[in-house]
Nucleic acid binder design. Structure first.
Lengths: 125, 125
DNA sequence: CGGTATCCTTCTCGATACTG
DNA sequence: CAGTATCGAGAAGGATACCG
């Protein structure tokens, strides 16, 4: 068979489209928003209070990004004063297991990570 | 019973220490570096070529961060000219399943995400 | 080969003020 | 209530040059 296969450096499995998507969905605020919305639908200011120290601006940007990627639905539930509810979408739900796994990994391995950090910092001081 | 339990907004599962760790390990370059190193140990310039368009500076920073968190080992395998090999650590290996899962999720759901984006962009134009 | 050091631009993010 | 608009500080990130 003719060889197309001889990549001394083989192609990355994570191409730019995948990277971009994961970046938009796994970033610092998104993880927390999605985690929260998996538990229950929430209003804007509810989310704001539930997620310590997020600013309006960052929360708005995060929600818009998640909405654009189909992870959350923005539902207007009342007018005057306007009321908006954010809900996890079916597509967003598919991330729930992964988020739980990440949280679990982080919890399990945090002690080892902390030891590694101390060792590293002691070496290089 | 006395009620400590009445959090109208309940506490976030993802506290700042976890967020910080996940941020340091799931960022754009780290994912690619870890994915690559799970396949095989690599030299610095090998990684650079394998990961399209990463700069020296960013790759160095990423590797230092991963090393500090105990995810990769930096092994000097030769001197003059100096040769360094980066290897996934035992701790880093524990992330492999998660990275595979993320990659799989991304691949599976990319079409739906793209449809969602198109719909969103069409509404708001 | 595997980095550091420096400069400089770009983007992020918080603070603040205002609106339908 | 749920945002938008604007500004400015600081961090991230690229380009380039140099070093052990």
């Amino acid at each position: 068979m003719a060889e197309t296969a001889k990549p001394a450096t083989d192609p990355p499995r994570l191409d730019s489209a995948h990277r971009e998507l994961l970046d938009q969905v796994l970033d610092k605020w998104s993880l927390q928003v999605l985690d929260r919305l998996c538990e229950r639908p929430s209003r804007f200011n509810e989310l704001r209070r539930a997620i310590p120290v997020v600013t309006q601006k960052s929360l708005t940007a995060t929600l818009r990004r998640l909405e654009r990627n189909g992870m959350v639905d923005r539902v207007i539930v009342g007018t005057r004063p306007i009321a908006v509810e954010y809900r996890i979408s079916a597509l967003g739900k598919t991330l729930q297991g992964l988020i739980d796994a990440l949280l679990h990994w982080s919890t399990t391995n945090m002690p080892d990570v902390e030891r590694a950090r101390e060792r590293f910092d002691r070496q290089g001081d």
